[in-house]
Write a protein that binds this DNA or RNA. Sequence first.
DNA 1: AACTGTGAACTTCTTCACAGCC
DNA 2: GGCTGTGAAGAAGTTCACAGTT
Lengths: 219, 219
Amino acid sequence: MQPRPRTIPEATVARLAVYLRVLTTLADGGRSTVSSGELASAAGVNPAGLRKDLSHLGPCGVRGVGYDVGALRDRLTRVLGVESARACVLVGIGNLGSALADYAGFGTRGFEFVGLFDASPARIGQRVGALQVRPLDELEDVVAATGASIGVITTPAEVAQPVCDRLAAAGVRSILNFAPVTLAAPAGVDVRKVDLSVELQVLAFLGQQRVPAGVGETA
Amino acid sequence: MQPRPRTIPEATVARLAVYLRVLTTLADGGRSTVSSGELASAAGVNPAGLRKDLSHLGPCGVRGVGYDVGALRDRLTRVLGVESARACVLVGIGNLGSALADYAGFGTRGFEFVGLFDASPARIGQRVGALQVRPLDELEDVVAATGASIGVITTPAEVAQPVCDRLAAAGVRSILNFAPVTLAAPAGVDVRKVDLSVELQVLAFLGQQRVPAGVGETA
DNA sequence: AACTGTGAACTTCTTCACAGCC
DNA sequence: GGCTGTGAAGAAGTTCACAGTT
């Protein structure tokens, strides 16, 4: 018996995470019910799309009324698998790595950093957030001991691939890569890339495209 | 004269930025030509898709040979509008803001931070990268003086909306938002959002979905 | 022979419109 | 009346296959 299809579209999953954030805020504000229109507007999406997204979880709301804030939040929490905190390791404790290690948004959403690693002796032992930076040598031991299944790479581009290899070999199944390179990983290991400067470039391009006035091109 | 349609799909623009990065690396390595297959593999995409992306710029390559690395890099640079550095301001100099201010990836790709702003007196005057943090009061003056058209928000969620309003009023046309809220901006101002914890959640969900039971491989 | 450029098939995502329920 | 849930239509993006060029 499979009442709900196991496959939720990736685009939907990304939005579910956003809905969860908004619902948490609403619940903290003491709100008990919310309509698709209001929730959609707070999440920056179209109301019909939001309802379609939620339909992948089966019926969640009450027709004529809306959604129960607490119940929907709990449901999304369960679906996204955020019930029990998942252990993550972070490699590369530069500016960006420190920012992520210290970012409350992770801790409050089902993720817990269990190891921070860096190759530079100058950084080892430094305290970042609640943890101390460890030498890269200890990576495999910590992954094994904690069962960490998620790795985050914030190293310079040159060393990202070897770090990725070590994470995969150590048993990490999911990797979030902030280094500006495309990583290769063995089958069974999922790599997701975030390139901050690409985001800026897309933004800038769309901005300039929007300008109807004489854009001096044609070099 | 408009031989090519002005509209390049957004998904394509994002990939063009990646190709540009790879091409720059190749050019630095002394490489003179490259095929779509090799470039695609370095960028982590399908070769046919890469060729389709490039086709939006008109013919760029030589059939039977491939692409000229330097020429294609220059073309992408021009198309993406990275020729002249564009002025950006950054508001919210916490951990993440500091990381971005110091991120070489921006400077080398046509973006220049011309102002770093924070509301906290403790941070004002601090040196981050090449700049000193200024009080938020000076935001409008700096935007006016520098003609900055891009703003980056790395503030706490609570103040992101007022900051967005001030950026828009000051004349900024494009905003990259790292705060975990959905921002409203007037027409003509483009807001793009990056939510780091959403990325992690999607990654974690896809990872858990991939494991229905013991897939039968372990270390 | 090798590789690009592109129409056409295909898949995925989004939006619409309305039936169904409270 | 108001709002959810969903099939159907539409748009966007991806992949394929091959014609075209050097």
